[in-house]
């Protein structure tokens, strides 16, 4: 499968500044692509557009040549956000958060080091690194074809970072899921990605 952004331009309603200008990107489901830029250059915005959360002003997002919006039901492009504490419902227990995913295999939950004792807790009772494991598991549902990882390990310590990436890399390789890694850490991108694209204004 192929995920494609074609000549996308975008600005927020209240913004005076164009965030993306004719931005294009191609991601194959067999590759791992890095995306880097300073803050404020639209890294998160481009992920949101690629995952269908925002509609671009100009240009289109294509999945295997068809517009992403024409796929109904579960979205095959899943985004993992930078701040896990802001991307889970604070009133749901963690096991319910996992149920938001798409027919999750037990293997994934185990592989990410999620402990049984955490499942009955609420988000506020877990640390950032523990929460992020749930967010990653939730995104790895059965019908996921692409993962957009937006700075998903910046707030974690180095050991947890490498734990999470090693699991994720193995998983996407086995299932042929395309992976977009957004980060400002060059050593990390060099370590993880087949190629790296720079986003410039």
């Amino acid at each position: 499968m192929k995920l494609e952004a074609r000549d996308i331009s975008f600005q927020y309603d209240n913004g005076y500044r164009k965030i993306l200008n004719e931005f294009s990107l191609t991601l194959d489901s067999k590759e791992c692509l890095g995306l880097t830029a300073p803050s404020g250059f639209g890294k998160t915005t481009s992920c949101k557009i690629l995952a269908g959360y925002e509609k671009p002003e100009k240009g289109q997002v294509l999945l295997d040549g068809k517009p992403l919006s024409s796929y109904k039901g579960y979205c095959p492009v899943q985004m993992i956000w930078q701040h896990p504490e802001q991307s889970v419902n604070p009133r749901l227990r963690m096991k319910e958060v996992l149920n938001e995913g798409d027919r999750l295999e037990e293997r994934i939950v185990e592989g990410l080091g999620i402990e049984q004792g955490w499942l009955n807790r609420y988000p506020a009772e877990l640390s950032g690194g523990e929460l992020q494991r749930f967010c990653i598991a939730r995104a790895l549902g059965e019908r996921t074809r692409f993962i957009l990882a937006d700075e998903i390990t910046t707030m974690l310590d180095l050991i947890t970072q490498s734990q999470i990436w090693q699991f994720l890399l193995k998983e996407v390789k086995e299932r042929e899921i395309g992976l977009l890694v957004v980060s400002h850490s060059d050593p990390l991108l060099k370590r993880l990605c087949d190629r790296v694209q720079k986003l410039d204004g």
Binding site: G113, E115, S127, G129, E130, D157, L158, I159, T160, Q161, S162, Q163, W165, Q166, S185, P187, L188, K190, R191
Partner: peptide
Amino acid sequence: RALYRAMPDHGFHSVPGTQ
């Protein structure tokens, strides 16, 4: 030492388990 080895430039090795 485990932190050192987990740096992307120093092998990116992880240790199982959590704090």
